[in-house]
Amino acid sequence: MEEWRFEPAHDFGLSAEQRRQSLRREVGLESAISCLLWRLITRFYLALAHRLEICGRENLPKRSPFVLVANHASHLDAIILGGILPLRFVGAVFPIAAGDTFFTKRSSSIFATACMNALPIWRKNCGAHSLRDLRERLLNGACVYILFPEGTRSRSGEMGNFKPGLGRLVAQTNIPVVPCYLRGTFDALPPSGRIPRWKKIRVNIGQPVSFPSAANDRIGWEAIARSTETAVRALTN
Protein backbone atom coordinates (compact mmCIF):
# COMPACT_ATOMS: atom_id res chain seq x y z
CA MET A 1 0.00 0.00 0.00
CA GLU A 2 1.30 3.42 -0.91
CA GLU A 3 1.86 5.80 1.98
CA TRP A 4 -0.26 8.90 2.39
CA ARG A 5 1.41 12.07 1.27
CA PHE A 6 1.15 15.03 3.58
CA GLU A 7 2.01 18.53 2.53
CA PRO A 8 1.97 20.91 5.51
CA ALA A 9 1.03 24.51 4.83
CA HIS A 10 4.02 26.23 3.23
CA ASP A 11 3.98 28.77 6.06
CA PHE A 12 3.67 26.05 8.73
CA GLY A 13 5.38 26.71 12.05
CA LEU A 14 5.60 30.49 11.61
CA SER A 15 4.15 32.84 14.21
CA ALA A 16 1.08 34.86 13.26
CA GLU A 17 3.19 37.95 12.55
CA GLN A 18 5.72 35.99 10.48
CA ARG A 19 2.88 34.39 8.53
CA ARG A 20 1.41 37.75 7.59
CA GLN A 21 4.79 38.86 6.25
CA SER A 22 5.55 35.61 4.46
CA LEU A 23 5.35 35.31 0.69
CA ARG A 24 4.60 31.62 1.24
CA ARG A 25 1.43 32.40 3.19
CA GLU A 26 -1.38 29.98 2.39
CA VAL A 27 -4.98 30.97 2.80
CA GLY A 28 -7.07 28.90 5.17
CA LEU A 29 -10.81 28.81 5.71
CA GLU A 30 -10.80 31.72 8.16
CA SER A 31 -9.02 34.16 5.82
CA ALA A 32 -11.06 32.96 2.87
CA ILE A 33 -14.22 33.84 4.80
CA SER A 34 -12.94 37.24 5.94
CA CYS A 35 -11.76 38.07 2.40
CA LEU A 36 -15.11 37.01 0.99
CA LEU A 37 -17.01 39.23 3.43
CA TRP A 38 -14.72 42.16 2.69
CA ARG A 39 -15.17 41.57 -1.04
CA LEU A 40 -18.96 41.58 -0.74
CA ILE A 41 -18.94 44.78 1.31
CA THR A 42 -16.56 46.61 -1.04
CA ARG A 43 -18.44 45.48 -4.14
CA PHE A 44 -21.60 46.94 -2.72
CA TYR A 45 -19.77 50.14 -1.76
CA LEU A 46 -18.13 50.55 -5.17
CA ALA A 47 -21.39 50.04 -7.02
CA LEU A 48 -23.20 52.48 -4.76
CA ALA A 49 -20.65 55.22 -4.09
CA HIS A 50 -18.67 55.15 -7.32
CA ARG A 51 -21.16 53.71 -9.86
CA LEU A 52 -18.35 51.34 -10.86
CA GLU A 53 -18.44 50.57 -14.57
CA ILE A 54 -16.49 47.63 -15.98
CA CYS A 55 -15.67 47.28 -19.69
CA GLY A 56 -14.07 44.24 -21.21
CA ARG A 57 -14.90 41.74 -18.48
CA GLU A 58 -14.79 39.01 -21.15
CA ASN A 59 -11.01 39.55 -21.37
CA LEU A 60 -10.47 38.09 -17.88
CA PRO A 61 -8.94 34.60 -18.10
CA LYS A 62 -11.27 31.83 -16.94
CA ARG A 63 -8.66 30.10 -14.80
CA SER A 64 -5.64 31.06 -12.75
CA PRO A 65 -2.75 31.81 -12.77
CA PHE A 66 -2.71 35.28 -14.28
CA VAL A 67 -1.57 38.79 -13.39
CA LEU A 68 -3.71 41.92 -13.41
CA VAL A 69 -1.70 45.10 -13.98
CA ALA A 70 -3.01 48.64 -13.89
CA ASN A 71 -2.16 52.28 -13.40
CA HIS A 72 -2.04 53.28 -9.75
CA ALA A 73 -3.42 56.51 -8.35
CA SER A 74 -5.34 55.53 -5.23
CA HIS A 75 -5.75 53.08 -2.37
CA LEU A 76 -9.05 52.13 -4.00
CA ASP A 77 -7.24 50.56 -6.98
CA ALA A 78 -6.44 47.18 -5.43
CA ILE A 79 -9.91 46.97 -3.89
CA ILE A 80 -11.48 47.62 -7.32
CA LEU A 81 -9.35 45.11 -9.20
CA GLY A 82 -10.03 42.49 -6.51
CA GLY A 83 -13.71 43.33 -6.76
CA ILE A 84 -14.04 42.78 -10.52
CA LEU A 85 -12.76 39.20 -10.33
CA PRO A 86 -15.30 36.38 -9.96
CA LEU A 87 -15.90 35.29 -6.37
CA ARG A 88 -14.50 31.81 -7.00
CA PHE A 89 -11.02 33.39 -7.05
CA VAL A 90 -11.42 34.63 -3.45
CA GLY A 91 -8.43 33.49 -1.43
CA ALA A 92 -6.41 32.98 -4.60
CA VAL A 93 -6.12 36.71 -5.42
CA PHE A 94 -3.06 38.39 -3.96
CA PRO A 95 -2.52 42.10 -4.40
CA ILE A 96 1.22 42.77 -4.24
CA ALA A 97 1.44 45.56 -1.69
CA ALA A 98 4.21 47.80 -0.47
CA GLY A 99 5.61 46.28 2.72
CA ASP A 100 6.73 49.65 4.03
CA THR A 101 3.21 51.09 3.70
CA PHE A 102 1.00 48.20 4.77
CA PHE A 103 3.10 45.76 6.76
CA THR A 104 5.01 47.85 9.29
CA LYS A 105 2.11 48.42 11.67
CA ARG A 106 0.36 45.44 13.23
CA SER A 107 -3.16 46.74 12.65
CA SER A 108 -2.60 47.55 9.00
CA SER A 109 -0.84 44.26 8.33
CA ILE A 110 -3.79 42.37 9.84
CA PHE A 111 -6.14 44.33 7.58
CA ALA A 112 -3.90 43.84 4.55
CA THR A 113 -3.85 40.08 5.01
CA ALA A 114 -7.26 39.26 6.52
CA CYS A 115 -9.30 41.48 4.18
CA MET A 116 -7.13 42.17 1.14
CA ASN A 117 -5.02 38.99 1.20
CA ALA A 118 -2.02 41.11 0.20
CA LEU A 119 1.55 39.85 -0.13
CA PRO A 120 4.26 42.30 0.92
CA ILE A 121 7.09 43.47 -1.28
CA TRP A 122 9.71 45.68 0.33
CA ARG A 123 10.48 48.56 -2.00
CA LYS A 124 13.80 49.57 -0.45
CA ASN A 125 15.47 46.18 -0.62
CA CYS A 126 12.91 43.94 -2.31
CA GLY A 127 15.73 42.24 -4.11
CA ALA A 128 15.64 39.60 -6.76
CA HIS A 129 14.90 36.74 -4.40
CA SER A 130 11.46 37.83 -3.20
CA LEU A 131 10.44 38.37 -6.82
CA ARG A 132 11.78 34.91 -7.57
CA ASP A 133 9.62 33.50 -4.76
CA LEU A 134 6.61 35.28 -6.21
CA ARG A 135 7.38 33.95 -9.68
CA GLU A 136 7.69 30.41 -8.38
CA ARG A 137 4.40 30.68 -6.55
CA LEU A 138 2.70 31.97 -9.69
CA LEU A 139 4.10 29.10 -11.74
CA ASN A 140 3.17 26.45 -9.16
CA GLY A 141 -0.13 27.43 -7.92
CA ALA A 142 -3.56 28.60 -8.57
CA CYS A 143 -3.03 32.25 -7.83
CA VAL A 144 -3.79 35.66 -9.30
CA TYR A 145 -1.61 38.69 -8.63
CA ILE A 146 -2.73 42.28 -8.70
CA LEU A 147 0.25 44.42 -9.51
CA PHE A 148 0.86 48.11 -10.03
CA PRO A 149 4.12 48.27 -11.99
CA GLU A 150 4.51 52.02 -11.45
CA GLY A 151 5.65 51.04 -7.97
CA THR A 152 3.76 53.79 -6.19
CA ARG A 153 0.59 55.84 -6.42
CA SER A 154 0.78 58.68 -8.94
CA ARG A 155 0.91 62.00 -7.11
CA SER A 156 -0.40 63.96 -10.12
CA GLY A 157 -3.00 61.57 -11.49
CA GLU A 158 -0.87 61.03 -14.59
CA MET A 159 0.27 57.47 -15.22
CA GLY A 160 4.02 56.98 -14.66
CA ASN A 161 6.46 54.58 -16.26
CA PHE A 162 6.28 50.86 -15.51
CA LYS A 163 9.17 49.28 -13.59
CA PRO A 164 10.71 46.05 -14.87
CA GLY A 165 9.88 43.96 -11.77
CA LEU A 166 6.76 42.66 -13.51
CA GLY A 167 9.04 41.16 -16.16
CA ARG A 168 10.80 39.04 -13.55
CA LEU A 169 7.47 37.37 -12.75
CA VAL A 170 6.30 36.49 -16.23
CA ALA A 171 9.27 36.40 -18.65
CA GLN A 172 9.47 33.08 -20.53
CA THR A 173 6.12 31.88 -19.27
CA ASN A 174 2.66 31.54 -20.74
CA ILE A 175 1.11 33.31 -17.76
CA PRO A 176 -1.37 35.90 -19.10
CA VAL A 177 -0.87 39.51 -18.09
CA VAL A 178 -4.14 41.40 -18.19
CA PRO A 179 -3.75 45.17 -18.68
CA CYS A 180 -6.39 47.31 -16.96
CA TYR A 181 -6.93 51.03 -16.89
CA LEU A 182 -8.61 52.66 -13.92
CA ARG A 183 -10.24 56.00 -14.53
CA GLY A 184 -11.60 58.23 -11.80
CA THR A 185 -9.78 56.73 -8.83
CA PHE A 186 -7.46 59.73 -8.51
CA ASP A 187 -10.47 62.04 -8.25
CA ALA A 188 -12.23 59.67 -5.87
CA LEU A 189 -9.34 59.20 -3.44
CA PRO A 190 -5.98 60.79 -4.36
CA PRO A 191 -2.83 60.01 -2.34
CA SER A 192 -3.29 63.34 -0.57
CA GLY A 193 -6.88 62.58 0.44
CA ARG A 194 -8.19 60.67 3.41
CA ILE A 195 -11.91 60.34 2.72
CA PRO A 196 -13.21 59.06 -0.64
CA ARG A 197 -15.42 61.34 -2.72
CA TRP A 198 -18.50 60.20 -4.64
CA LYS A 199 -16.81 60.16 -8.03
CA LYS A 200 -17.60 57.77 -10.86
CA ILE A 201 -14.97 55.09 -11.52
CA ARG A 202 -14.51 53.11 -14.69
CA VAL A 203 -12.31 50.08 -15.36
CA ASN A 204 -11.23 49.11 -18.86
CA ILE A 205 -9.93 45.56 -19.12
CA GLY A 206 -7.74 44.84 -22.12
CA GLN A 207 -6.81 41.61 -23.85
CA PRO A 208 -4.32 39.42 -22.01
CA VAL A 209 -0.76 39.20 -23.29
CA SER A 210 1.90 36.67 -22.39
CA PHE A 211 5.64 36.69 -22.87
CA PRO A 212 6.88 33.15 -23.60
CA SER A 213 9.72 34.36 -25.80
CA ALA A 214 10.87 37.40 -23.83
CA ALA A 215 14.34 36.86 -22.43
CA ASN A 216 14.45 36.34 -18.66
CA ASP A 217 17.04 39.08 -18.14
CA ARG A 218 17.08 42.83 -17.67
CA ILE A 219 16.54 43.58 -21.37
CA GLY A 220 13.60 41.18 -21.53
CA TRP A 221 12.09 42.58 -18.31
CA GLU A 222 12.36 46.15 -19.61
CA ALA A 223 10.69 45.11 -22.87
CA ILE A 224 7.85 43.46 -20.96
CA ALA A 225 7.39 46.57 -18.81
CA ARG A 226 7.30 48.81 -21.87
CA SER A 227 4.89 46.63 -23.80
CA THR A 228 2.52 46.27 -20.83
CA GLU A 229 2.67 50.01 -20.25
CA THR A 230 1.71 50.60 -23.88
CA ALA A 231 -1.15 48.13 -23.52
CA VAL A 232 -2.47 49.94 -20.45
CA ARG A 233 -2.09 53.37 -22.12
CA ALA A 234 -4.07 52.09 -25.09
CA LEU A 235 -7.03 51.58 -22.74
CA THR A 236 -7.16 55.19 -21.56
CA ASN A 237 -10.00 56.26 -23.85
Binding site: P8, A9, F12, G28
Partner: peptide
Protein backbone atom coordinates in the same frame (compact mmCIF):
# COMPACT_ATOMS: atom_id res chain seq x y z
CA UNK B 1 -8.65 21.22 13.90
CA UNK B 2 -7.02 24.22 12.25
CA UNK B 3 -3.59 23.13 13.46
CA UNK B 4 -4.13 19.58 12.27
CA UNK B 5 -5.47 20.71 8.90
CA UNK B 6 -2.51 23.02 8.34
CA UNK B 7 -0.01 20.34 9.34
CA UNK B 8 -1.47 17.68 7.06
CA UNK B 9 -2.39 19.99 4.18
CA UNK B 10 -6.08 19.02 4.52
CA UNK B 11 -7.00 22.73 4.70
CA UNK B 12 -6.45 22.96 0.95
CA UNK B 13 -9.67 20.98 0.38
CA UNK B 14 -11.85 23.89 1.28
Amino acid sequence: YREFARATGFFRYR
